[in-house]
């Protein structure tokens, strides 16, 4: 158990190292491009360029440059953005992280509960009109671009019908920290997270439905029926237990990529100062240190989430716990 954990951690570190090298290579070691100019941003003064060159060691070999960069990112955490007048980058990311985390947590809550309800309902009522309707709705949800949906939601709740009874509670765009007002926090995130969740509800409901229907054809489900278990028990207790796996792995990956900045469009549309929006701004201004920081942050999250999913797998299926598969 402990050995497995250690080797897992080792693997994670290795993957993160690999990503950092790759990202570094893309941004700073591409032949023919001067990283100094890139960090300094457009129209920087010669003094600034000279300072950067010395500070980052761009006149020294590549491994040294890489180490310097990592030191600035993880150890001294004083990587600064020159586009943004010397603003340290790392604290900026760390400040944005809770916003994204809150948004994604809420969205995950909506999409898990929504897809559970829709997925189970359409599996149980398969081939009925309810099933067909739900699956079409799911497809629609899946295909609506999140930024368009977000703009429509804003249009409806912020301006067009804001004064009606239905939407009077909707706060202005932006984020309210949990520590400031838990209720305000929830109100501010309700619509953005729901918007973000729509596509996922559609996707996850479809996945769950098909997994559940496959599972219901298993021998062990027949056994459950032969034992005298009722439909609720057969579907929820036996069927779900068999169909969790791909749902969970999908969830782990989506959750991680959203935390890592995948909620960019939602954050921009709803003016939430999260990691996604930070990335967006960095890209807009070509702020290289900031891009570097957000990409690394995203990589760490994806890798950690992957490891967590693997752990969860083992919890859900004893066969995986022992490194065996199937029969």
């Amino acid at each position: 158990m402990i050995r497995g954990f250690a080797s897992r951690t080792g693997q994670m570190l290795l993957v993160i190292f690999g990503i950092s090298v790759l990202v570094f290579a893309i941004f700073f070691a591409t032949p023919g491009a001067d990283p100094t100019a890139r960090i300094a941003g457009r129209g920087a003064s010669p003094q600034v360029v000279a300072r950067i060159r010395a500070e980052y060691g761009f006149d020294r070999p590549l491994p040294v440059q890489y180490l310097k960069m990592m030191e600035k990112l993880f150890i001294s955490r004083d990587l600064t953005s020159f586009v943004n007048h010397g603003q340290p980058v790392v604290p900026e990311v760390l400040q944005a992280a809770p916003v994204t985390l809150s948004l994604v947590l809420w969205a995950a809550f909506f999409w898990v509960s929504g897809s559970l309800v829709f997925g189970i309902a359409s599996a149980v009522l398969r081939d009925s009109w309810v099933d067909r309707l739900l699956m079409v709705l799911g497809l629609v949800g899946l295909s609506i671009p999140v930024f368009w949906l977000g703009e429509v939601v804003n249009l409806v709740t912020q301006s067009r019908w804001h004064d009606t009874l239905l939407f009077r509670w909707v706060p202005p765009l932006g984020y309210v920290p949990f520590s400031q007002s838990p209720f305000g926090w929830a109100k501010a995130l309700f619509l953005p997270s729901l918007t973000l969740a729509v596509a996922f509800i559609g996707l996850y409901a479809r996945v769950l439905r098909s997994e559940l229907l496959t599972a219901m054809g298993e021998d062990s489900i027949r056994t459950a029926r032969a034992k005298g278990a009722g439909p609720v028990r057969v579907w929820l207790w036996h069927g779900l237990r068999l169909s969790w796996l791909s749902y969970v792995s999908l969830f782990g990956l989506d959750f991680a990529q959203l935390l890592g900045g995948g909620a960019l469009l939602t954050e921009v549309v709803f003016a939430l100062p999260g990691v996604g929006r930070l990335t967006y701004q960095a890209l807009a201004t070509l702020d290289l240190p900031l891009i570097m920081a957000t990409v690394m942050y995203a990589a760490v999250f994806v890798v950690v989430a992957n490891a967590l999913v693997d752990g969860l797998y083992a919890l859900l299926d004893p066969r995986i716990r022992e490194g065996r598969h199937g029969g």
Binding site: D219, S220, R222, T223, R319, G327
Partner: peptide, 15 residues
């Protein structure tokens, strides 16, 4: 009560 051909698949593998 009923028993089945393949006791491997007839039991739920995860419990």
């Amino acid at each position: 009560a009923m028993i089945f051909q393949d006791p491997m698949t007839a039991f739920l593998p995860v419990r």
